[in-house]
């Protein structure tokens, strides 16, 4: 499944867009992201699915468009 990463998160995962094996829920997604990119575990970021910020309970499928959104701070 396609994952978009914004801000400093695209540096942490190596690209603004990555592909990972499909997972079934946002909770599983967090677990998988932490396994692949351990540095993400300490980061604050929201997860949006199909352009809506969601909680960990939401189910995912292969067509879900996932975005990782950290708080930006520069001004």
């Amino acid at each position: 499944m396609k994952i978009l990463a914004f801000g400093r998160l695209n540096e942490l995962v190596g690209s603004s867009q990555i592909e990972i094996d499909t997972v079934n829920s946002v909770q599983e997604l967090r677990h998988e992201l932490n396994r692949l990119f351990p540095q993400l575990e300490r980061e604050v970021f929201a997860i949006a699915v199909n352009k809506v910020v969601v909680t960990d309970e939401l189910n995912l499928d292969n067509n879900s468009e996932v975005a990782l959104l950290p708080p930006f701070s520069g001004g």
Binding site: G7, R8, E41, R42, E43, V44, F45, A46, V53, L69, P70, P71, F72, S73, G74
Partner: peptide, 17 residues
Amino acid sequence: YRDVFPPESGNIPERFS
């Protein structure tokens, strides 16, 4: 803002300078 980015959910860098 804290609904989107709960401050207790991880380390937040103070500034992206």
